[in-house]
């Protein structure tokens, strides 16, 4: 099979042909760029993500994948371009507001709260989106609806309920599960996963793949993954970045057969 035209980069045309996208896209990126001095970490990336879509963002080391995520979650300003989330222009919105609109993310390098217990980690995530995080005289761990929500998420990612163990004492694999649990507990509309399987053993990768597969179908997921097979197995649609630029976009099959993608991946021996 040869790569189809659609699989190649075309920033001008809006994508309308993926299955099941009724209504406006959940996420719309328009020429999003981030420059660090002379380094163009991300350069004019544009794509739409429809509700319920599973999109993988792939690319070699330093391609700009993480930087792109930071701009979507508003943890890093955009140098140029615009980000729209659920119809709101969030290019200048503070990160905590974006989170409250329904966006959650995980980090490539685990960013849990080390000396807090597993349950406290997740309760902290749940309480961030609710009113009352400034309350001073009731117990954080006594708010039943929040604790229930947290325990459910802990269950979902396969950790033990009511876990009192501090996060720092979990193994790396469990910390990755917790990392996902923290984001999932927020019941986001858009979930950004930055290499959820980073550093996991083969068996643990399988577990993580099943977790991502099992996410609610209405949840929109953007996934960074180094492992091509894992990424292509999970995604409906794939964007490939290289040196900050978008070099290909298409279905997993199209990407698999895309020459530029092959060159990039073979070129660096991954």
């Amino acid at each position: 099979m040869t790569p189809t035209k659609e699989a190649l980069l075309d920033v001008e045309s809006d994508r309308t042909d993926t299955g099941g996208d009724d209504g406006p896209p959940v996420l719309r990126l328009r020429e999003v760029s981030r420059h660090y001095g002379g380094i163009r970490a991300v350069n004019e990336v544009s794509f739409d993500v429809a509700q319920g879509e599973r999109r993988a963002v792939i690319g070699p080391n330093g391609a700009g994948k993480t930087t792109l995520f930071k701009m979507i979650s508003r943890e890093e300003p955009t140098t140029k371009g615009s980000v729209e989330f659920l119809g709101h222009d969030i290019t200048r919105t503070p990160a905590h507001r974006v989170a409250r609109l329904g966006l959650s993310r995980t980090y490539q390098i685990t960013r849990v709260f080390p000396s807090l217990s597993v349950l406290e980690n997740v309760v902290l995530a749940c309480q961030g989106l609710r009113r009352g995080s400034f309350q001073m005289f009731n117990s954080a761990m006594g708010r039943k609806s929040i604790v229930d929500q947290a325990e459910e998420a802990i269950d979902t990612v396969g950790l033990r309920r009511g876990a009192k163990t501090p996060a720092s004492e979990l193994g790396h694999g469990e910390q990755r599960q917790l990392e996902l649990g923290i984001a999932l507990a927020q019941e986001p509309k858009l979930l950004l996963l930055d290499e959820p399987a980073a550093g996991l053993s083969a068996a643990e990768r399988g577990l993580m793949r099943d977790l991502v597969r099992g996410l609610p179908p209405e949840m929109t997921v953007l996934l960074i993954e180094h492992d091509m097979e894992l990424a292509l197995g999970l995604a409906d649609y794939v964007t490939c970045l290289h040196n900050g630029s978008q070099v290909a976009e298409g279905t997993p099959d199209e990407i698999r057969n895309n020459e530029r993608v092959r060159d990039i991946y073979l070129g660096q021996g991954d």
């Binding site: 905590h96 959650s104 080390p114 406290e120 961030g128 400034f134 309350q135």
Partner: peptide, 20 residues
């Protein structure tokens, strides 16, 4: 309290707090 837990969150991983 919830406020106290937020303080501990800032102590433990401040950079994650905005995204939550």
């Amino acid at each position: 309290s919830p406020f106290g837990l937020s303080l501990k969150g800032i102590r433990e991983a401040e950079t994650r707090m905005p995204a939550l």
